[in-house]
Every structure is written in structure tokens, then in C-alpha cells.
Amino acid sequence: MHTSALVLFSGGQDSTTCLAHALNRYERVETLAFDYGQRHKVELDARLNVLAAIKSRFPQWATKMGEDHLLDAGILGQISETSLTRDTAIVMETSGLPNTFVPGRNLLFLTLAAALAYRRGLQVIVTGVCETDFSGYPDCRDDTMKAMQVALSLGMDRRLLIETPLMWIDKAQTWQLAHDLGQKADADGGGQALVDVIVEHSHTCYLGERTQRHDWGYGCGQCPACQLRAAGFGRWTSR
């Protein structure tokens, strides 16, 4: 039986929902983020605010939260000419992928996460990758995750489980999942408490915009990440 998890936690909507999923499921949960030379470090600040808000709002989860880790993955910024690591406009490439795709990012993240999980004695790696609402990134596919799970378990000579709670749900369903998880942790709050944490503290915007407040949170409202988040929130609230 699995009792511990390491959550890849960037501080966005998806990873915050994944963190709540892990806290609802496991006895000990640690978090991991990467500084990979991204254009905007806003998410690295936002994630600390999310962690603080969850600990404050959900005392029963706070007791399960272990160490938070930040690793330097700057090599990605050195070798990636993408709009997430360079000051360039977001466009579609001839490959059919947007230039927000950072080649090898999730593969490197999972490898480093597995090494850390090994050292920390953690059994499950939780990540917010998704095939339903995504930009075609090949390293977000279920097949990729399954292959990485096999490779990492073999390479570490220890069974590691890669858990992807969002893999087959869209953004509207991700909002609903956050609501349901919040409700389980705080029945008196009716599930809104975790949604409020996501709206107020999480960060998804590719451009690092934190001055414009929308019903679904802060962001420019124009980049693909904002549009996806806003559309999902709209579908969820109109149900």
C-alpha cells in the first residue's frame, strides 16, 4: 500500500489540484519545483503562497505536508529556444507544436523527481500532465508516462508509481475535482475553500501577469494558458 508521495508542484491550477489529490490520499506528501530558466519567476513565488494558504486553510492537510524542494534545472533554459525560456511571442511551429513546448522538460523533471523520491523514501510521483486539455505536448501523453514509470523503476531498481490524476479530464472537470477535494477536507466550506486558494494564489499565465484579476484568477487573459483556464472555469460555473 502506498503511503507517501512527491508532487511536481509549480504553483499552477493543475499542480495545486494534484497536491490536494495527494494530500487527500497519502499520509506524507512532499513537493518539488524546478527553476529551469523560465522567463517569469512569478510561479516560483506563487507556489509558496499556495503552500502557505493550504496549510492555513486546511489544518488536517498541513500535518501531512513535508519538505518542499526546489531544484536547479537551468540546463533546459540553455538548450531551449522556446517562448517559455526566451522573450519571444507565442506562435505555432512548423512541427505543429506551439513554441511553448520545452523539449525534454517533463522527461528531465520526472527523472530528477525519481532520484529525489528514491533518496527521500517516497513511493509515488504525482504530476499534472493531461491528454484532454493540452497543446499536443508529446511528454504529456499517457504512453510517455507509462514508459517513464517502467524506465525509472528499472533504473532505480525500486518500484515507482507515476500518478496522473488529470490525464483524462478537461479543465472544467479539473475545477470540479478541486471543489470536491476541498469539500472532503473541509465539509463546512462546501468545497469552495480550495477553489478560492486556486483563484487567489495559483499562477498559470505564460506571460507572468499578476495585476489583472479575473473570476478564474490572475493572468493576461490572452495567452493559451489563460484562455484554457478561463474557458474551463466558464464551463464549470455554467453547469
Rank of each mutant, 00 (worst) to 15 (best):
H2W: 07
S4E: 09
S4Y: 11
S4C: 06
A5D: 04
L6V: 08
L6N: 03
V7T: 12
S10D: 01
S10G: 05
S10L: 08
D14F: 03
S15W: 12
S15L: 08
H21F: 15
H21D: 08
H21T: 12
A22Y: 05
L23I: 10
N24G: 06
N24T: 10
R25F: 00
R25W: 05
R25P: 03
R25Q: 14
E27G: 10
E30M: 14
T31S: 14
T31M: 09
A33I: 04
D35L: 07
Y36A: 12
H40Y: 14
K41E: 09
E43A: 13
V50L: 12
A52Y: 06
A52S: 13
K55E: 15
K55T: 10
K55Y: 02
S56D: 14
F58S: 01
P59T: 07
W61K: 01
W61L: 09
A62G: 14
T63G: 11
T63Q: 15
T63H: 11
M65Q: 11
H69E: 03
H69P: 03
H69S: 05
L71D: 00
A73Q: 09
L76I: 10
I79F: 13
E81H: 11
T82I: 00
T85F: 06
R86T: 10
D87Y: 10
V91F: 12
M92I: 06
E93K: 13
T94S: 13
T94L: 14
G96N: 09
G96R: 14
N99Y: 15
N99L: 07
T100R: 05
V102H: 03
L108P: 02
F109G: 08
T111Y: 00
L116R: 15
L116G: 05
A117I: 07
Y118M: 11
R119G: 06
G121W: 03
Q123N: 13
Q123R: 07
I125P: 00
V126Y: 08
T127W: 05
T127L: 11
C130H: 00
C130G: 01
E131L: 00
F134W: 04
C140L: 01
R141I: 06
R141N: 02
D142S: 14
M145Q: 10
V150P: 01
A151G: 11
S153D: 12
S153M: 13
M156P: 05
L161E: 15
L161Y: 13
E163M: 09
L166F: 08
W168S: 13
I169N: 02
D170E: 08
K171Y: 06
A172M: 01
Q173I: 04
T174W: 00
Q176V: 04
A178D: 02
H179N: 12
H179T: 02
A185C: 06
A185K: 05
A185Y: 05
D188R: 11
G189A: 14
G191P: 05
A193H: 07
V195G: 11
I198G: 11
E200Y: 02
T204E: 04
C205H: 08
Y206L: 09
G208K: 12
T211G: 02
R213D: 03
R213N: 06
R213S: 05
H214A: 13
D215A: 15
Y218D: 00
C220P: 08
C220Q: 08
C223F: 12
P224T: 04
A225G: 06
Q227N: 09
L228Y: 00
L228I: 00
R229G: 01
A231T: 08
G232L: 02
F233G: 03
G234W: 07
T237D: 03
T237C: 09
